[in-house]
Design a binder for these strands. Structure first.
Lengths: 360, 360
DNA sequence: TTGTATGCGTTATCAG
DNA sequence: CTGATAACGCATACAA
């Protein structure tokens, strides 16, 4: 008793009957390939119109081997960073006649694995993924080996033969930290948004070896933060580095903890816009003012960044562009390109507004 | 030279061969239906594992008539309102083994039509749509008639036999306006975010008949705004009603125009969070303070609403819930329910924070 | 230009 | 419990 079984939608066969031609001719007329006499074409088109015929994409995909579907695996579509990237991706895909299937992982490895299974079974033409920090490389390798091209977004996976799109995280974090140092700050907190489980790996004395932290975005940015402090001869205090979760509330809690330290930070670098929001909220609750009491630089130029008081100083990534480039790289491969994997790093801009001020 | 033609993925046939059984047995073992001897089952599963077999969802869909795909047509996935609704939808869908295909319309009727075509051809099991104000009812009727259940989200289409999920827009707008009146405001601007084309239809003297404005959200809310003013005996000034586009910049521009009136508003009601953001930004640029110079109430409790200064007073909708309910209603129908269409109105809450203050 | 016949990878039916 | 075989709807090689 499925929909199809109650003989719902008309097929090419029905159209052909109605038009009094063979199915092949009907198919040719509808698909506008091969050659069809003008007369036949007209009749077929008329019949199709009359029956309000719509080709069955499934059947077509079985033949062509193309589903015109791109899978996109992200932590959370609600996160403005990813919804913007998805939009960029969707726009290029749409331009080329493809659609995007989005799956959320909530930074959960299990969900990520399941997403890969689903997308494989759906025979997507390719997929873009922002892998979890703990991503299972072998699973992704399996996908690639099965013939589905993969593009890594925002994050990388060491040793995976796939294109990737992102920014130079180390340089970006270094630059932002440097700016805070230039403003006279010495006690600069780093809100990573990493889960607490990562804490022991991340917070070794002097942040030693974080850059090798399985190539995570967090690790790489932490390395940039360390670079800047080291270059300025500032002693890194690991209690100023936070790995307490990526939700806004986590950041609010983190800033409360940080401000209660005997020597609290005078500036904060937050690794994404939600974390920055949490800091702002936490600061409000503590009745502290920004930038008078605490300076703040966030990652990602959220749409509210310019509308709030004070306007937020940010490290802006071209997120829409990132999605677009990911889409382009992917569609090239879907179209058959087999060039060596590229690693595309988009430029960032430090947009100075008013949330980061000179130390008082 | 498509991927499938280069003999990539193994099929049931291959698995059956490898296991030394018939395809039927293999299929039964893999699909775990019918009855298979334990011995055969083991061998099939082992063969599948060895070949890293993944069932082809396309072929399955052709038979079952179910694609396990829900289409979602929204103006813009980047808009936090819709990305949250999509998340709610995706979560229930995923629970029941379905995925969501999201298409953006940018409030463009043409794109909307095309989205419907795409989703029909893909044989989605059902679709959720937040139709454009100028939505083409016949197109949606066609979709429904073809057997694809439809749920309307956030907005309605007059006379369409489909479920719909939203809020009581008229009451919500009335309540918010009423609150501003209670705070002593008389000159209250309404930022609708409607396109300029709608202006002549919307801004008739006294906002007469807006409630019949093809049942649009904007029209209904405008009616609520009018209701409150009328009840309080306040004369409605149409120059305080804005229909100048839905982007943030449009709102910023609108507030500049409004504040330059000889008798500028002392309070503003913005019909979504992006518009509220634009107002805030415009106010900043004009060096006006909120709520001291202008009070503001916005629709939708954005995540930044509580983090900014002053925290924004909002009419909060349960957006995630809306997406979820839409998904539930839709999946019920996909499962075969043929109950009469329901119109589900979720409650709203006026969350009083600090952006709306007593008139000075 | 047109028609016939075959295949894509499943599920489902019916004998055995 | 198992195996052969027919759909599903379209594209396409080949024949007419």
């Amino acid at each position: 008793m499925t929909r199809s079984s109650r003989g719902g939608m008309p097929s090419v066969v029905k159209v052909a009957q109605q038009a009094g031609v063979s199915t092949a001719t009907a198919a040719r007329a509808l698909g506008s390939y091969g050659s069809v006499s003008e007369k036949a074409r007209q009749r077929v088109l008329a019949a199709a119109e009359a029956l309000s015929y719509r080709p069955n994409g499934l059947a077509r995909s079985m033949i062509t081997g193309l589903t015109r579907t791109i899978g996109m695996v992200v932590p959370d579509i609600e996160n403005p960073f990813f919804s913007r990237a998805v939009r960029g991706m969707a726009d290029v895909a749409h331009e080329q006649g493809s659609q995007v299937l989005v799956l959320n992982t909530d930074e959960d490895v299990e969900s990520e694995l399941q997403a890969l299974t689903v997308l494989t079974e759906r025979r997507v033409d390719g997929l873009v993924i922002a892998p979890t920090d703990a991503a299972d490389r072998s699973a992704l390798e399996g996908v690639i080996k099965s013939g589905i091209p993969v593009v890594l977004l925002d994050r990388t996976v060491r040793g995976l033969a796939a294109d990737s799109v992102g920014i130079d995280n180390r340089a970006a974090a270094r630059e932002a930290t440097q700016r805070l140092i230039d403003l006279g700050h010495q006690d600069i907190a780093l809100l990573t948004g990493a889960p607490a489980e990562l804490q022991p790996h991340l917070m070794r004395p002097g942040l030693r070896g974080v850059e090798r932290l399985t190539g995570t975005t967090v690790g790489t940015r932490a390395a940039g933060y360390r670079d800047a402090l080291t270059a300025a001869g500032i002693n890194l205090r690991t209690e100023l580095v936070s790995a307490e979760g990526f939700h806004r509330q986590d950041a609010a809690k983190a800033i409360r903890r940080l401000m209660s330290l005997s020597r609290p930070p005078t500036a904060v670098l937050a690794l994404d816009s939600l974390l920055a929001l949490g800091v702002l909220q936490g600061l409000r609750e503590l009745r502290l003012r920004c930038p008078d009491d605490v300076s703040l630089i966030g990652f990602d130029d959220a749409d509210w960044a310019v509308a709030i008081s004070p306007p937020l100083t940010v490290v802006a990534q071209s997120v829409y562009e990132m999605g677009k480039v990911a889409g382009q790289l992917l569609l090239e491969r879907v179209a058959g390109s087999d060039r060596a994997p590229v690693r595309c790093r988009l430029p960032v801009r430090l947009i100075e507004r008013e949330s980061a001020g000179r130390r008082r």
